[in-house]
Simulated assay, not measured.
Amino acid sequence: MPCTSTRSVPSPRPRAVAAGVDVIVAQGCEAGGHVRGEVTTMALVPAVVDAVHPVPVIAAGGIADGRGLAAALTLGAQAGWLGTRFLTASEAATHEVYRQAVIQAAPQDAVHTRCFDGGWPNAPHRALRNSTLRAWEAADRPAAPNRPGEGAVVARSADGRSWSRYDDMVPVPGMSGDVEALALYAGQSAGLVHDVAPAGRIVTDIAADAAALMRRTRTP
C-alpha cells in the first residue's frame, strides 16, 4: 500500500494525493530520527487533514500514550504512528544502554541536530543528548571533518564491524564499546516513556486509554 510522509505544511494541491497514495503520514518536528520539518504535530496534522481530504492521515511525532493518540484522532487523523515508545518494547532490537537512555530522558533531552550525519550528510534529525553530542556542542558545532573525535571507533557489532563517532547507527544488542556515544535517535515523547513492556501490551494500553478518553470527551 503506497503512502507518503509530509514534514511541512502541504501545498493547496499536494502532489502525493494527485499521485494516488492511499494514506499520508504527517510528521511533526517533535519526532525522533530524521526530521526535516519545523512544524509541530499539533499544528501540522489538522492542516494536512484539511489539505488532503478525503485521503486518510496518520499523525506522527510526540505521541507515546493514549492521550497523544486521542489528541491526534481529535485533530482529524485516522491513526497514530509511534516510534520512540517502541524503542523500549521488550521485542525491540535496542541495546540496554539505549533503552535506559530513553527511559531516563526528559523531553528537552531529545535535540534537533545535524550531529550524526554519517551516511546522511547534513540531514537534520532528533537524538538524545549524549557524550558525542555534548562534545560537539561544546566545540561550537564544527562541520565535518573537524568535529571532536572525528573518525574514532566507538563501538563494534557482534559480527566485528566497527562504528565511528558521528555514524548514522544506533546501539543494538551484541554491540560492545562506548555504545552510549552512538546516535540515540528519539523524539521528545521520550519524556513519556518510563518502562520496558511487551509491544502487544503497549498497543493494548494505548488503544484502551485513547478510547476511554474519547468516550469521556463525547459524554454530554
Rank of each mutant, 00 (worst) to 15 (best):
R129L: 14
V153H: 09
H112K: 02
S131W: 03
E150A: 01
P121F: 07
P121K: 00
D117H: 04
E150H: 07
W163H: 11
L128N: 10
L133D: 01
N130M: 11
L133W: 14
A152Y: 01
A158G: 04
A127L: 10
G119D: 02
H125M: 14
A127W: 15
R129D: 00
P145L: 10
A123L: 03
A152W: 13
W120D: 05
H112C: 01
G151D: 03
G160D: 06
D168C: 14
R126A: 12
A152E: 14
D168Y: 15
L128F: 08
P145V: 13
L133C: 11
V153P: 09
A155L: 06
A135V: 13
R114I: 11
R147Q: 05
A135I: 06
A143H: 03
R161I: 11
A138H: 12
P124W: 07
A123C: 11
A135H: 10
T132A: 09
R147V: 01
D168N: 14
D167Y: 03
R129S: 12
A139R: 13
G119K: 03
A144N: 03
F116R: 05
A139K: 07
R134M: 15
R129C: 12
A144C: 07
R129Y: 08
R156G: 01
G119H: 08
A158R: 10
T132Q: 07
R126I: 07
R161M: 07
W163F: 15
R156I: 04
G151Y: 06
A152I: 15
P145E: 10
V170W: 11
E150K: 00
A152T: 13
P142N: 08
Y166K: 02
A135K: 05
S157N: 12
F116E: 11
R141P: 05
P121I: 08
D168T: 15
N146C: 03
C115D: 01
A155M: 06
D167C: 13
D167S: 10
M169P: 02
A138F: 04
D117Y: 02
T132F: 09
E150P: 00
R134K: 15
H112E: 09
A138S: 12
A155T: 05
S162R: 07
R134A: 15
R134I: 15
D168Q: 09
D140N: 13
R141Y: 14
W120H: 15
T113R: 06
A123M: 12
N146D: 15
A123T: 08
A155G: 04
R147M: 02
D167H: 09
V153A: 04
P148S: 01
R114H: 03
C115K: 01
S164I: 10
R114F: 01
G149F: 05
D167G: 02
G118P: 05
L133R: 03
S164V: 11
N146W: 09
Y166M: 00
W163Q: 04
R165H: 11
